[in-house]
Amino acid sequence: MQIIGPDVLVFGVDDVPACHEFLTAYGLDAQDYTPEKGGLFTGLDGTGLEIRRRDDPSLPPALKTGNMLRMQVIGVVDEAALEAVQAELSKDRQVLRLADGSLRCQDDQGFELAFRVTTRKPLDMPGEKVNAPYHPARAANAIGVSEDMPARPRSLSHVVLFVPDVDVAVGFYRDRLGFRITDTLTGAGPFLRPQANPDHHTHFFIRTPVYMQGCEHLAFHMGGPTELMLAGSRMIRAGFESFWGPGRHKFGSNWFWYFKSPLGCNVEFDADMDIHDDDWAPREAPMGPEAAQAFLFQYRDKWAPTGGPGGPKP
């Protein structure tokens, strides 16, 4: 199945203005936003988050757990791919075809899904370039960082779900929708990528009690680790609170920095994730601090050493 991954994640929240404050600071563009109705918050390629009041009647039903995720809108490559999803899922459940052409159904654990031909717009923006000895990637005189350089989320990367039953989740996303398992953290769960997306994961499932079902975190891709560090540092200086990071994960190799959010889940910046094809042999490691990251740092205020005691001379 030619699925690309989440185009939009829909949330029904209890504090829309707080989400606006957080997500615009995070670097998303607010579109058609009002404090009463919410709006769409997009990254540079048009993927994003739809934020509505939790009692908005246009939303699909809420999860019983209180988690604010209401739906994943999953992009596929074309109409033929959409028809393939419809044919497969219609075998054992109701799949609605809406007036806008999208499909609506539930997965096997009650997560609401929509499928549509993706509306993401591929970006013509270079990634971060690194100068290594004998192998410079930047042209002469091209500087690597400036205090005010743009550092905006480019594309919705992945969603991590707390699921009551990992086997049921895998049975749906792998066996019905054709996702590939790239790696597994035993004790937590598997990373999955859909066939039309080489990213190490668009989904990661974590086994939890039933009363936790929902979104654990979501992430957007940045252009590279420098953008990630700048964006996260700006968040901290604006008073937002880090949950985990910055650091670099082992599985997926992506740099990470997680922030708590009024969406009731963590919102992550990621950068430089591995890409894979079907030649990849999945790995396994027991979940824990050692497997979760190659290294981990914590933000600190700017500081500088100088020459002699007493600071720089005028």
């Binding site: 929240v13 209890d14 707080a18 404050e21 936790m212 008073g239 609170e241 708590k260 889940c265 963590n266």
Partner: peptide, 23 residues
């Protein structure tokens, strides 16, 4: 720690202390 920004410890209606990591 629970806040999503400095001093932001309550849910939207202000009825409960809310952890902004996992709700």
């Amino acid at each position: 720690p629970m806040a999503w920004k400095r001093d932001a410890y309550l849910n939207g209606e202000g009825t409960h202390i809310a952890c902004a990591a996992h709700g």
